[in-house]
Design a protein around this nucleic acid. Structure first.
Lengths: 175, 175
DNA sequence: ACATATATCTTAGTCACTAAGAGATTTAGC
DNA sequence: GCTAAATCTCTTAGTGACTAAGATATATGT
C-alpha cells in the first residue's frame, strides 16, 4: 500500500461514510416526525406537498407507494392536526386535492432549521468549484441508486427459483 | 446572477440533489427488505450484525432505538428464517448473543450487488483526489447531521410551550 | 342510457411496535 | 454466604399504520 491511501481503501471508506451519513439523515427525519408528533409517512406526505404544492390523494399514493386506503388515513390525521386541507376538485368531483395550511405547516418547517444550519456550516468550507463537484456527484449518485433500485425491483417479479444467481463479490464487511 | 451559477443557486441544487439521492437510498433499502421477505427493522439488524459481528439482544435495542420487546420479535423472525442464531453467553447467562448464519445471510448480501455495481460505476469517474474530497465531505456531513439530530432531540425534552422559537429562514420551497 | 373506467373512502384483518412487568441471573452490601 | 438491588431478555396486552378487497360516487365512451 502506497503512502497516499490506496484507492480500494478510499472506496471502502467512502462507501462506509456515505452509508453512515445517509442512515443519520433517515434518523433526522424520524426525529422530526417524532417532535412534530406525527407518523413518518405523514411527514413524507408533508414533504411532497411542499415540493409539489396542491396534489390529489391518488398522487400521494403514487409517490409514496402506499395504497389509497392508507393515504386516506394519512390525510385524516394531517387534517385533524390542522396541517392540511381537503379540497374537492370542482371540475372532476371524484378528485380530492390536498393542500398544506401554511401557518401550521411552518412549525414543522422550523424543525428543519438545525439541519439547514448544519449543512450551511459544512458547505461553507467549500469553494464554488468544489460544490459543483459535489453536485455532480450527488446527481450521478441519485441516478445510480435509482437504476439499482429498478434492477432490484425486477427481481421481485422473477420467481425466486428462477432468479439469476448474482455473484457476490464480498460481504460488506468481514468480522 | 453571473454567468457561472450563483452560489445560492448552487447550494439549493446541492441540497435538493442530496435529499433526492438520500431518499432513493432509503427506497433501495426498503426494496431489499421486500425482496428478502423480511421487515425493515429486521434488515437493519442484519446490517448491524454484519458491521459489529456477534452482538447481544440488548445492544441491538440500543443501536436501533427499539424496545427490547421489539427486538425479541425481530430476532424471533430472523431466527425462524434461518438468518441468525441465538447463543446464550456462558459467562453471563442472562445475555443472549445473536450471530448471523453466513450461508443464509449471503443471499441477502447478494441483494446489495446492484447497488455496489452502480456505486462502482459512479466512483469510477473520479480521480483519487476527487474521491478524497467526497470522503471529507461525507465525513463532515455525517458529523453535521449527527449534531443537528442531537440539537433536535433536545427539543423533545423541552415542553412545547417552552421551546425557543426557531427562526425559519425560508420554507424549503416556494410553490 | 348503459357499461366501463377512475378516484376516494370503508371495512376487516394483519403485523410490528410500545409499555409494563415477569422471569432468570448477576452484582453489591452487609 | 445471604439478601436486595440491578441487569438482561422475554411475555403479555393493547395500539396504530398498513394492505386487500370492495363500496361509493363521479366521469367517459359507445
Amino acid at each position: 500500500m502506497s503512502r497516499t491511501k490506496a484507492r480500494t481503501t478510499l472506496l471502502q471508506e467512502l462507501e462506509e461514510a456515505m452509508r453512515r451519513s445517509s442512515a443519520q439523515g433517515v434518523l433526522y427525519g424520524q426525529t422530526v416526525a417524532n417532535v412534530a408528533g406525527i407518523a413518518n409517512s405523514d411527514l413524507e406526505c408533508m414533504d411532497i406537498l411542499y415540493l409539489e404544492g396542491r396534489v390529489t390523494a391518488g398522487r400521494l399514493a403514487e409517490v409514496t407507494g402506499l395504497t389509497t386506503g392508507a393515504i386516506t388515513g394519512v390525510v385524516d390525521r394531517l387534517e385533524k392536526a390542522g396541517l392540511v386541507r381537503r379540497e374537492r376538485d370542482e371540475k372532476d368531483r371524484r378528485k380530492v386535492f390536498i393542500s398544506v395550511v401554511p401557518e401550521k405547516a411552518m412549525k414543522i418547517g422550523q424543525l428543519y432549521v438545525p439541519m439547514q444550519q448544519a449543512m450551511e456550516k459544512v458547505f461553507g468550507a467549500y469553494s464554488d468549484e468544489e460544490l459543483r463537484l459535489l453536485l455532480r456527484f450527488a446527481t450521478e449518485g441519485y441516478k445510480g441508486v435509482l437504476a439499482a433500485t429498478e434492477a432490484l425491483k425486477s427481481l421481485l417479479d422473477t420467481p425466486p427459483e428462477k432468479r439469476p444467481d448474482l455473484k457476490l463479490k464480498k460481504l460488506r464487511r468481514e468480522t
